[in-house]
Design a protein around this nucleic acid. Structure first.
Length: 572
RNA sequence: GAUUAUGUAGCUCAGCUGGUAGAGCAUUGCCCUUUUAAGGCAGGGGUCCUGGGUUCGAGUCCCAGCAUGAUCACCA
């Protein structure tokens, strides 16, 4: 047998055609009525053994133990796994035992999806099991699944290679049950956040993803082109400026779960596309917003994990209110013992060097403070902590602090050593805003690729007047990582961005036959490593001749051995 | 981007100082029958990531590349 499939794939394809020959449709069209799930059976049957005396259940076959005329199998549905018991004479009441002996035992495989009817009972081993009276094939699986086994909590042969898990997330979800759990929790997180915001009366809105100018954050964008308008568009890096336009327009509370795109490095905390929830509420300030974040995240923790305490790595994180609050200067003083709040730029620069923080001459006072904070404090903040009052240079969209010179009214919540949200009293002074944009332009001219662009329409909007507003951006992926104890952002995204999969380019058979290669030699030629005609043309005829003779023997081909002349004629 | 580790059967992994490619699971055939990581016997299955080099001989040593992970840098 010569084939491009693996042996196991070929066996499954053979089973498929045998099923068809037996008159069994491997992909039937009609619905299969399901009236129970594995989870509810496992939960309810022990307390009432009269239940489930005729159930219909469907799922994927995950294991089989065949023993002559009796067999056990496990099927997996959306809620979990349950064992099935097949008995030859139960499944085949008549003389003809084909359905059990051939269809079940030989033609079905792990991975196939079946529907069964039967009654629930306890086996001698005490396991809740469905005694199958009839079954129906719903989908034949043509690829073998990795087999993951587990005993007493120990996983054997885990399907753990991150590349395969992320590229083939469907396989990951089938064989690694905890993975499904992460995504269910992620959705609970989003749902409870949305419910909280709706309950407060804020309006969920949608704003453009394709933007002629990108803004609202400091990041490099993805760039694209609109043909009809013949204009450059960017995928949004944030939606802040649009939501604030809506506040100008008279909505007092708007929010959006925003898929944002940033053209930057990728690692376990960064994916090129990620989700933020941004919220803007009129007539509020950042103090008020801090209280909202505390309350909202505490509620989410309870909704997702049922408790305010969550185990993340080696730490137990407690989201119970109130959270610790530090100004940035206080945090630095706390972790380094040095009070820099009264220092000038020179003194801060010297302090940074003393603390082994990497700094250079181009950094202004604000940047220096931020570097010191990032280096000495951030990773030590495990319990949720608000850091307030940031240097103005770092925050071109935040309002100047009501009492502290050089600072803005801004806070971040840090948790497990990472920023989870960023918020401020929004700058609504259009003249100040224009100046801040202009100084960003200066930074851009000096070569900062992340400097913000001047958004003339946004300025026009706030020149009409925006009420004092509190704004918040909260990273859904980061929060999901914490809430699900996930080590990387890739674990909380169904399909994280990966390098493109390398695809072998294979010439059509007709290209080979057109070049004079006989049909029966195409597979051996491909087996010998020449997948395209172009590669074959570069081959050494003597080596190919040897290889093909070897392959002829190995593959037990019943065709005459090739001649060297013949092979030379292919290559020329 | 830097450093580093890994890449061997469908899956998980062994493979020593260089000498005929191995195990468990999966798969195929047979046996058994309320088993449970089922078991017993017998089989099949490999571009040892790719390309060069050293060598009589490379899965193993050297160089380059590709992929993935980790750490660091970048990402206010």
């Amino acid at each position: 047998m010569i084939t491009e499939f693996t042996e196991q794939e070929q066996i499954r394809r053979n089973s498929l055609s045998e099923l068809i020959n037996l008159g069994i449709n491997p992909y039937p069209a009609e619905l299969f009525e399901v009236d129970a799930t594995s989870k509810e059976i496992l939960e309810k049957f022990p307390t009432d053994n009269s239940l489930y005396q005729s159930v219909n259940i469907a799922g994927r076959i995950m294991s089989r133990r065949i023993m002559g005329n009796a067999s056990f199998a496990e099927i997996q549905d959306e809620t979990g796994r349950i064992q099935l018991y097949f008995n030859r004479d139960e499944v085949c009441k008549e003389e003809d035992k084909t359905l059990y002996n051939i269809v079940f035992k030989k033609l079905l495989d792990i991975g196939d999806i079946i529907g069964v009817n039967g009654y629930v009972f306890f086996t001698k081993m005490g396991e809740i099991t469905i005694h199958v009276k009839g079954f129906k094939l719903l989908c034949k699986s043509l690829r073998p699944l990795p087999i993951v086994k587990e005993k007493e909590g120990v996983i054997y042969d885990a399907f753990a290679d991150p590349e395969q898990r992320y590229r083939q997330r469907y396989v990951d979800l089938i064989v690694n049950s905890h993975v499904k759990d992460i995504f269910i929790k992620r959705t609970k997180l989003v749902n409870s956040m949305r419910a909280y915001l709706n309950e407060k009366g804020y309006l969920e809105v949608e704003t453009p993803i394709l933007q002629p100018l990108y803004g609202g954050a400091a990041a490099r964008p993805f760039k694209t082109h609109h043909n009809a308008l013949d204009t450059t568009l960017y995928l949004r890096i944030a939606n802040e400026l649009y939501l604030k336009r809506l506040i100008v327009g008279g909505f007092d509370g708007v929010y959006e779960f925003s898929k944002d795109f940033r053209n930057e490095g990728m690692d376990r905390f960064h994916n090129p596309e990620f989700t933020q929830m941004e919220l803007y509420v009129a007539y509020k300030d950042y103090e008020w917003m801090m209280n909202l974040v505390e309350e909202m995240v505490e509620k989410i923790a309870i909704a997702v994990q049922g408790a305010t305490e969550i185990k993340v790595g080696d730490n137990i994180i407690n989201f119970k209110r109130p959270w610790k609050r530090f100004t940035m200067f206080e945090a630095i003083a706390h972790y380094t013992g040095i009070d820099i709040s009264k220092m000038d730029e020179k003194e801060i620069f010297a302090t940074a060097q003393k603390l082994n923080v990497e700094v250079d001459e181009t950094m202004g006072k604000g940047k220096l403070i931020d570097e010191i904070f990032g280096e000495t404090c951030e990773s030590k903040l495990i319990q949720p902590t608000f850091i307030t009052d940031y240097p103005v240079e770092m925050s071109p969209l935040a309002k100047k602090h009501r009492s502290k010179e050089g600072m803005v009214e801004r806070f971040e919540a840090i948790c497990n050593g990472k920023e989870i949200c960023n918020a401020f009293s929004e700058l609504n002074d259009p003249i100040d805003q224009r100046k801040r944009f202009e100084s960003q332009l200066e930074l851009g001219k000096r070569g900062d690729p992340e400097a913000m662009m001047l958004d003339e329409d946004f300025l026009r909007a706030i020149e009409f007047g925006m009420p004092p507003t509190a704004g918040l951006g909260i990273g859904i992926d980061r929060l999901a990582m914490i809430m699900t104890n996930a080590h990387s952002i890739q674990e909380v995204l169904f399909f994280p961005q990966m390098r493109p999969e390398k695809k072998a380019i294979i010439s059509n058979d007709s290209e080979f036959t057109d070049a004079g290669i006989p049909q029966e030699w195409i597979v051996p030629v491909k087996k010998a490593g020449f997948l395209t005609l172009a590669e074959l043309k570069k081959a050494n005829p003597n080596k190919l001749f040897n290889d093909l003779c070897g392959l002829r023997k190995k593959l037990k081909l019943e065709i005459p051995a090739p001649t060297l002349e013949m092979i030379k004629s292919w290559i020329e």
